Simulated assay, not measured.
Amino acid sequence: MHNHPTGKPLTIVIAPDSFKGSLSAAAAAAAMAAGAREAGLALGRPVLHLTLCPMADGGEGTLDTIAAVWGVEPSIMLTVDALGRSRRARYATSADGRTGLIEAAESNGLTLVADALPQPQRADTYGVGLLARELLDQQVEEILLCVGGSASTDGGTGLLAALGVRFLDAAGLPVAPGGAGLAQIASLDLAGLHPHARVVRWRVAVDVNNPLCGPAGAAAVFGPQKGAQPRDVAELDAGLARLAAIVLAETGENMSGRPGAGAAGGMPATLVPLLRAELVPGSTLVADAVGLAHKMASADLVLTGEGSFDSQSLGGKVAVAVARLASAGCPVVVIAGRVELSAADSAASGVTAAFSIAGGPSTLDDLQAHAAERVRETTAHAVALFLQSR
């Protein structure tokens, strides 16, 4: 591991998240690479082996980030938004055709229905299900589903309806779409479920621990931002509880209090028991999808970064997820807009050191306007320190 100028080139893996509002993950990685090269030249160590691996946390931008690392262009297909209106949405399939990736917000996103009056009880995930059905038709082996930014509270029933599951009332008729129909569900008919739906491995990126129902549940916490008034919240919560009871009777799996089941309007409530979906932190899902652990195995230094390195970062955002994958003895340096964690907290999370790009008293606007050059400069300082120590 201890190189000198004539040894093998040092390997630096660069795996930042986006800096929200100023730099995409790819732009941040490019700026860090420029800084590392600058430091190498200045110290007479021009030959650095740089591996760029832009990251994401499973939220907005994840599709673009993973598709870029996979080296594929996202595909486009006709689907529907959360209110059932026709729309085109993107998804991605890995180059070997084995893994499909869906960013639910491409069809189910809250921003896509901002032009309409909120219909919190009508909104559903059927459009996400159409994307999933396309991937199942392609016979992928794994579906990665990023569920952030959802506009619905339907417990994932719309998605499953698109895959052929029927949610029936006491008279044996299909219930109304969206959260409104949940309270009427009396039974499930799985006979028409897509034959590949239970063969494929489902991994769902979830970054909240909210349960399905109750005061911390999907309807109470996330319903209001989707336009739900207090009465809607109560009805949606009761509907999700009803759904959980039916699912429990059908599968023996109780989702009502399970941490994370309240994500994305309760999508895990049906995906986990009916399709055996696994819930994983978004950063972990992305790291696996881009093969980050393999890329980092031979690294001498790992650089990562995000807009703000703070207490939320410890809950599994990109920087800490990257640090956890680093091999023992490999330093991990965070470059961030703001650094709010102490050196001790950083060290406890596996981060060797964290540097803020703020070069002095500056406004957020100023930082965002000059983010790329500040990331480059700060990285140059950090890498110079590392190179000097080798």
Rank of each mutant, 00 (worst) to 15 (best):
H2P: 03
G7W: 05
L10E: 01
P16T: 07
K20R: 10
L23K: 01
M32E: 03
G35K: 00
G40C: 05
G40D: 01
R45H: 11
P46H: 06
L52T: 10
T62W: 10
T62H: 06
L63R: 04
L63P: 02
V69G: 03
E73Y: 09
P74L: 14
S75A: 15
R90N: 04
Y91N: 04
S94A: 15
S94Y: 04
A95E: 13
G100M: 06
L101S: 12
I102V: 15
E106F: 02
S107R: 06
L110E: 01
T111F: 07
Q119V: 00
D124L: 02
T125F: 06
V128N: 02
L130C: 09
Q138E: 11
E141H: 11
E142Y: 04
L144V: 09
V147A: 05
S150K: 07
L159V: 08
L163K: 14
G164L: 04
A170D: 13
G178D: 02
A180K: 03
G181H: 11
L182P: 04
L188T: 08
R198P: 08
V199F: 14
V204A: 05
N210C: 10
N210A: 12
C213P: 02
A218V: 05
G223R: 01
G223K: 02
P230L: 12
P230D: 11
V233K: 01
R242L: 05
A245E: 15
A245K: 11
T251G: 13
P268R: 09
V272S: 09
A277G: 14
P281E: 13
G282C: 07
A299C: 13
D300A: 09
S308N: 06
S327N: 13
C330S: 06
A348C: 05
S349N: 14
Q368H: 09
V375P: 00
R376K: 11
T379D: 00
A380R: 00
L385C: 10
